[in-house]
Each structure stands twice: as C-alpha cells, then as structure tokens.
C-alpha cells in the first residue's frame, strides 16, 4: 500500500485517496473554439509511461483536496507531491 504525502495533511495511507489520472492534461478553455483533434486528445488520449508520471489523486477520506503526485509507474516510488496550483519540477 502506497504512502502518499498530502500537501495539506501529511503522510497518509493509500486507502484514503482515489486516483484521478494524468495531471498534465489541460482542459480546453470553456467558451472558446477548440478543434476536434484537440478535444479528442483531451478526452481520450493518454500516455501510459513506464517510469515517472505526474498524476492526480484526491484525498477523498481526508481534506478532499485534489493533489499532484509524481510517481514511478513501475516501482511505485513517489518523488514529489504538490498542491494542484503548484508545479512539479
């Protein structure tokens, strides 16, 4: 079981969190034209890297904040966690 450092609450067990996918995906701006290619990329296309991956988790059984976690998808090593408003490296 992973040990995830919530930037608000500290180190907590994985079972307090739920996974939210790739954190680097940016939603096209609301009320702005978007090409169907860009839209499809946003909705469907995700990389599945072996290694470092910046992803979203929500501290669902804690402070309910969405956070960023940089994790190695093969070893589960967590390099860094951050608030969603912060950049990871």
């Amino acid at each position: 079981m992973l040990y995830i450092k919530c930037p608000y609450c500290g180190l907590r067990a994985q079972k307090e969190f739920s996974y939210g996918g790739d954190a680097t995906v940016k939603r096209p701006n609301i009320n702005e034209e978007v090409s169907s290619e860009d839209w499809d990329n946003f909705v469907y296309m995700r990389k599945s890297p072996r290694g470092k991956h910046i992803e979203l988790w929500q501290h669902i059984a804690g402070c309910r904040q969405w956070i960023k976690v940089q994790r190695d998808t093969a070893t589960h090593e967590i390099f860094q966690t951050a608030k969603v408003t912060e950049e990871i490296r």
Binding site: S18, L56, Q58, Q65, W66, V84, T85
Partner: peptide, 13 residues
C-alpha cells in the same frame, strides 16, 4: 461531489 471539486480545484480555480 468529486466531479464538482475537480472542476473547482483544478480546471476553474
């Protein structure tokens, strides 16, 4: 609820 929190915290802060 998670869906609403996602948009408020990440997409439209």
């Amino acid at each position: 609820l998670s869906h609403l929190e996602y948009y408020l915290q990440i997409v439209w802060p």
